[in-house]
């Protein structure tokens, strides 16, 4: 909690200190004069000193009143909540796909260490790690939407229609691919390293010597041990999906909080930016907490007394 307050205070002040502001959007309309802007700012409370604004903001924030968007003129809480499910869906899909693919690949690379399988997986995951998400997203659209019209170019479904699960998955395919590529590669690398480390342990050689079948050695003994740091890393890594979603949502017209954040950043819509920032910070803190809890639960060697 104190961390959240600290983050929000720093973010609030930094945002306000950045040159420029929301009133820039009002420029270009000759009928909006200085006195009109001053009147609007006073009515929305933007004419007060930053510190006063901060305390009034945080006082209302804890009660669920996250302020009014300067641009949309709607309550920020509602604005964010109507976008959050889309982001959570994309994140969940990204995490699921990353795990489903990276776990078998990571195990395979470790077991087939230093063979051509391992080398090609290493190469592939370095490629995956190095590809910028925005570039990958655009390439996916060009190849799989424009050249080969297999997938939609963006959105969550055809506008104005009820969307079934298959249609949703169809619309999810490309954004999920883009959002999971980096993590997928990272997880594969990490699991491989973790597995190899465990497999080099003495008890693993002993297991081999006492004639345990390979599948039992790898899955039951190595993976169980290597899996503990892996799970922690995955949990800590969850916010990365949020960051990825920010880029991917913008490319694929995905109506989530990432796009909301991006649009609001361009327009300096402070209350929305603050709302998303605090929510994001909360997610980072919760992921770290989750990692700690999981570590304690999974590793019998760690006990908190």
């Amino acid at each position: 909690m104190p961390i959240l307050v600290g983050i929000s205070l720093v973010a609030f002040i930094l945002l306000q200190l950045t040159p420029g502001g929301p009133t820039a959007a009002y420029r270009g309309i000759a009928n909006i004069r200085g006195e009109d802007l001053a009147r609007i700012q006073a009515e929305l409370g933007y004419d007060r000193p930053i510190i006063v604004q901060y305390f009034s903001w945080i006082g209302q924030f804890v009660t669920g009143d996250w302020g009014i968007s300067f641009v949309a003129r709607r309550p920020v809480f509602g604005l964010i909540m109507e976008r959050l499910p889309a982001t959570l869906l994309l994140m969940a899909a990204g995490i699921t796909v990353s795990l489903i693919i990276s776990v078998p690949l990571g195990l395979l690379a470790a077991i087939k260490r230093d063979t051509w399988v391992d080398h090609s997986l290493t190469f592939a995951s370095f490629v995956g790690l190095s590809i910028p998400v925005f570039w990958l997203g655009l390439m996916l659209i060009i190849v799989f939407s424009v050249w080969l019209p297999w997938f939609p170019t963006g959105g969550m479904g055809p506008p104005g229609q009820e969307v079934g699960i298959m249609t949703r998955l169809w619309y999810l395919t490309l954004p999920t691919t883009a959002v999971s590529m980096v993590s997928l590669s990272f997880f594969t690398r990490y699991l491989r390293a973790s597995m190899i480390e465990t497999m080099d342990e003495e008890y693993m050689r002993f297991n081999k010597a006492r004639g345990l079948p390979p599948i039992r050695r790898y899955m039951r003994h190595a993976f169980r041990n290597a899996g503990i740091p892996f799970v922690t890393v995955v949990a800590i890594h969850i916010p990365e999906f949020l960051v990825g979603a920010l880029v991917v949502e913008t490319i694929f017209s995905w109506p989530g909080t990432g796009r909301l954040f991006w649009d609001s950043a361009i327009r300096f819509d402070y209350p929305v930016l603050m709302g998303v920032l605090v929510l994001g910070s909360l997610m980072v803190l919760l992921s770290n907490l989750l990692a700690d809890v999981l570590y304690v639960k999974l590793d019998p060697r760690v006990r908190l007394d």
């Binding site: 040159p19 420029g20 502001g21 929301p22 820039a24 700012q41 361009i266 300096f268």
Partner: peptide, 16 residues
């Protein structure tokens, strides 16, 4: 060049 919000911000926002 600067972002639009920086260029067109008002006096209090230090618009360029």
């Amino acid at each position: 060049n600067v972002p639009a919000a920086t260029l067109f911000g008002n006096w209090a926002e230090n618009g360029k």
